[in-house]
Simulated scan of single mutants.
Amino acid sequence: MHARDVVASIELAVYIPAAITAVIICAQHGFNRSSGWIYTLILCIVRIAGAVCQFLSRQDHSNGLIEAKIIIDSIGLSPLLLATLGLLSRFVDFINAKASSTFTTKHFRLLQLLITVGLILSIAGGTSGTVQPDGTVTIATTTKAGIGLYIVAYVGIVIVYLCSVPRTSVITNQERRVPVAIILALPFVLVRLIYAACSVFLHSHLFNIVTGNVALRVAMAVIEEFVVVAIYIALGFLVTKLDANARGPIAGREWKNKRTKGERRPRRHSMGALEQQRM
């Protein structure tokens, strides 16, 4: 088998059971978009689709299938970042329930917007890029812009985390597992992001999305995603479910709720009440 087919086989062996497990965790914690686990599930599905495309490309060498592989490879970063952002929102909500609010829904909305726009640009770039007969890929400017937004969003996530982690002592012992999982995952997300940046900004055959070095891709992308998915799935079994009325304003996505004209939305104190019950 071709080396890329071997990698695709391993991805299927890992992500199919991971997707099933992620469904179980989402059923426990909820399929709401503020949950980091729903994006973990999406990442598993995206990687399964990518592996299937790899096998199909053995018989179909059309540009359309190659474009699909490029798009799938680039959009995998968005659920990885959104999963981290979702778990970070849960962490910050618990802090805000016991201490002054440094970060609010506006900060998380901005980070989510950066990732979402990056996703859109990556998809647009994947459809507008060109592939030469020798496998050389011309990366579209929109793809580069999308990766740039991913980098900015990652920096923002790190800043929010570093500013929030000194106040970890105000949250319950069980919830302290969330920042531990995030700090374990962030270095792997960074390496994955570096690989993506090298793929679009460096004109090197080693990082070519179609014909690049397989060992390098495994070392800087495949393994990193495996580890992050494993960390987040394990975390899903280690923390308790938060009911809808127990989520804070960030994780509860109050900023997504539409106000009825002439009505004011009451301020939620659910996180504070939850903390008092646990104390």
Rank of each mutant, 00 (worst) to 15 (best):
T105S: 07
Q276I: 08
L216N: 06
S89D: 00
R268W: 08
R247F: 03
G36E: 06
R267G: 05
S78L: 08
S100H: 14
Y150D: 09
V228M: 04
L190D: 04
I159T: 14
S204D: 14
E175T: 11
I250H: 07
A246R: 11
S89W: 06
M220W: 02
I120V: 15
H269W: 03
A19V: 11
L56C: 10
L88I: 04
F226C: 02
I233M: 14
L113Q: 02
M279T: 14
S62Y: 14
S270A: 15
I45T: 13
V152Q: 00
I38R: 07
T168C: 12
S128I: 13
R47F: 07
H107I: 03
S122T: 10
T40P: 06
V158T: 12
S89R: 10
I233F: 10
A219D: 12
K144V: 01
H29Y: 11
L88D: 06
L186Y: 06
I182Y: 03
A234Y: 14
V191Q: 10
A230E: 05
S122N: 15
T40N: 14
I70L: 15
Y161T: 00
K69V: 04
N245C: 10
I171H: 06
I16H: 03
A153K: 00
V218D: 03
K144M: 13
V227S: 06
A99Y: 11
A99I: 08
F31N: 02
L41A: 13
R177C: 11
L110E: 00
A27L: 13
I38W: 08
G30E: 00
L81R: 01
A68R: 01
V160I: 15
L149P: 03
G146N: 12
E225S: 08
R247Y: 02
Y154S: 02
I157N: 02
Y39I: 02
A140I: 06
I75R: 01
F94I: 05
V46S: 11
C198P: 00
A19W: 08
V165L: 01
N257M: 05
R247M: 08
L186P: 00
A22S: 15
S35D: 07
A230N: 05
D243V: 04
R259C: 02
R177F: 12
I71A: 07
S169R: 15
P187V: 04
R264T: 08
V23T: 13
D5Y: 06
L113K: 01
N96Q: 04
I16K: 05
L80N: 00
L82K: 04
Y15W: 12
S204A: 14
G36D: 04
R47Q: 15
G212Q: 00
E225M: 08
G30H: 01
I159M: 13
T211P: 07
I139F: 02
Q174D: 15
R177D: 10
E224S: 13
V131I: 15
I147P: 05
H61E: 14
K258G: 05
T104N: 08
C53I: 07
